[in-house]
């Protein structure tokens, strides 16, 4: 098997020629890399999946604020709202919003989460994958295959650029998480390799240029609330791709565009909190409150 896949084109060609799924290639390569069996690879991924579910189940019942006091009770508010009002988009949509907030808020209150691909974007993939798996009763193996597929998407993106807000802004963190989530749910719904890659490309294109300007330098505002938005984008991208909608720009070129956009973005908008939301009047006010503590 080819262990040097560093572009989506290579991955696609290899999937087609070997008649294998993305997750089969990814778990084989990971096993070789770590010198363990494919079963052991799946056990590690299983542990990640379990931890994602655990973060949701703990986070969804908490309204404890973070140390800064800026965030922590949004999931609680949403849950209360949904107790009396149903989402116009139905129960799946409710779950996606709740699970993304639950995970992301668990992160900012120093709970246990899975950085997938980063801590700030940790709510996106679990929200999309786990809520859909619950609502449509996909089994654990399906979920593992989807998570491994998502991981392979992230891995190939990261071969071209660092998945860090400080390097390329939020597009490289929440944006990539959204693209990974899109791939996961396209996989679990039986999408083919082209549909999976298209779903990721569509999700990424949607967020090109997204800045990273966190208030007081903390992974809270706007990061927490960005998680549910990105999870919903992922589902949109997946459904477009499953319908046969194609990204006119192939995913490799979308990633190149993202890397270029990231490089052209001012460092002031890349996690340094020197511009954007961080330096608004209110952003600076929160910063002054937190610094006094």
């Amino acid at each position: 098997m080819d262990r040097n896949i560093s572009t989506f084109k290579q991955l696609c060609e290899y999937c087609v020629s070997s008649k294998k799924n993305i997750y089969e290639i990814a778990q084989y390569n990971m096993a070789k890399e770590a010198d363990i069996s494919e079963n052991e690879v799946r056990n590690v991924v299983m542990n990640a999946l379990k931890s994602m579910k655990e973060a949701i189940s703990i986070g969804i019942n908490s309204n404890e604020l973070s140390v800064s006091g800026m965030c922590g009770d949004d999931c609680y508010k949403v849950k209360k709202f949904y107790n009396k009002n149903h989402s116009m988009f139905g129960p799946l949509f409710q779950k996606v919003i709740e699970y993304a907030l639950a995970t992301s808020e668990e992160n900012i209150r120093m709970g246990k989460i899975v950085a997938c691909p980063t801590a700030g974007s940790c709510g996106i993939l679990p929200a999309a994958l786990i809520s859909i798996s619950e609502e449509y009763k996909y089994n654990t193996d399906d979920q593992l295959n989807a998570l491994i597929t998502a991981g392979e998407i992230g891995r190939i993106v990261s071969a071209k650029m660092a998945l860090a807000g400080a390097v390329a802004g939020c597009q490289a963190e929440c944006g990539v998480a959204s693209a990974m989530a899109a791939a996961a749910i396209t996989q679990i719904r039986g999408g083919n390799i082209y549909q999976i890659l298209n779903s990721s490309a569509l999700a990424l294109k949607n967020v090109l240029g997204l800045t990273c300007d966190p208030v007081a330098g903390l992974v809270e505002v706007p990061c927490v609330k960005r998680n549910p938005f990105m999870a919903v984008f992922a589902i949109t991208a997946s459904e477009l791709a499953l319908s046969g909608v194609e990204s006119k720009i192939p995913i490799d070129e979308v990633v190149d565009a993202m890397a270029q956009t990231g490089a052209l973005m001012s460092p002031m908008l890349k996690e340094s909190s020197e511009a954007g939301l961080a330096t608004t009047k209110t952003g600076l006010y929160y910063k002054s409150l937190i610094c006094k503590k």
Partner: peptide
Amino acid sequence: KSTLFDIILPVMVGPSSSHTA
């Protein structure tokens, strides 16, 4: 190079991979 595990792990206590983990 990054591996699959680098992308879908670690399981960690938040909130920041660089500042906490």
